[in-house]
């Protein structure tokens, strides 16, 4: 087991379907809420502290060995948007495929059998991290980073944003990412002791509403 497995799992080229999702950025761009690097930064910051924190905590809890089906149910309850549940499960299924190839493990097989159309992505990610010998914080880092790097990359394509500006946004968010990961990992530890209700449930109304709007568009670049 190697710490470098974290780099494999966190790599933007890890073939788990993320490239086709904008994390709500496509809708926010079309609605005029994101028009440049400054908006993108606030968008990513808001996402990081809401859905990012929740995802990171779910991933950390899965990495700690909590029952993935119970976590999957917790993810459902924390994802009111049906469109986002569909996207989350689709990405989970894609993550599952990649993870089973990279780090074959009976725990992944079991979850794949129980949720053939996909468990929520952070749960699969956490389980994959565990199969790769990584810890709860590693899983939380992967999940939290992905939740901001996805919209940043998508916005580069959507707005022809200068890629250096987008990377600058991610770099500036790094200290906050550390905080979110710490909070997520602590919540996951509490969940081990006191149950999954200890996991955060921070929500972002406009991400939820926007996801339903986006899912209804006849033409779009990204799946979510």
């Amino acid at each position: 087991m190697s710490q470098a497995a974290l780099l494999v799992l966190a790599d933007g080229r890890f073939p788990a379907g993320g490239h086709a999702h904008s994390g709500g950025a496509e809708e926010a761009v079309k609605a005029g809420r994101v028009t440049g690097a400054a908006d993108l930064e606030e968008f990513c910051r808001g996402r990081l502290h809401t859905t990012g924190l929740v995802s990171a905590a779910l991933a950390a809890a899965a990495a700690l060995g909590l029952d993935p089906l119970e976590l999957d149910e917790a993810a459902d309850a924390r994802t009111p948007s049906a469109a986002l549940r569909v996207a989350g499960r689709r990405l989970g299924r894609q993550m599952m495929r990649a993870a089973r190839s990279a780090w074959p493990d009976p725990s992944l097989d079991q979850l794949a059998a129980a949720r053939p159309k996909g468990a929520h992505q952070p749960v699969v990610l956490g389980l994959a991290a565990r199969a790769a010998g990584l810890g709860a914080r590693d899983a939380a880092y992967c999940s939290a980073y992905e939740c901001v790097s996805g919209p940043a990359t998508a916005t580069v394509r959507l707005l022809s944003l200068d890629p250096f500006d987008a990377t600058g946004v991610l770099a500036r968010l790094a200290p906050e990412l550390d905080l979110v990961v710490r909070e997520a990992a602590e919540a996951a530890q509490r969940a081990v002791a006191d149950g999954v209700d200890e996991l955060p449930a921070a929500s972002a109304p406009l991400l939820e509403v926007g996801a339903e709007a986006h899912a209804g568009w006849p033409a779009r670049l990204f799946a979510s």
Binding site: R45, G46, L48, E73, R78, A201
Partner: peptide, 27 residues
Amino acid sequence: RLLLDQELSCGPGAPGGWDGPAVLAGH
């Protein structure tokens, strides 16, 4: 069984981005 669990946090001192384009956008 859990059906819905959501927390909204806003106002001065809330986690960053609460009034930004992902969360409330000035509403």
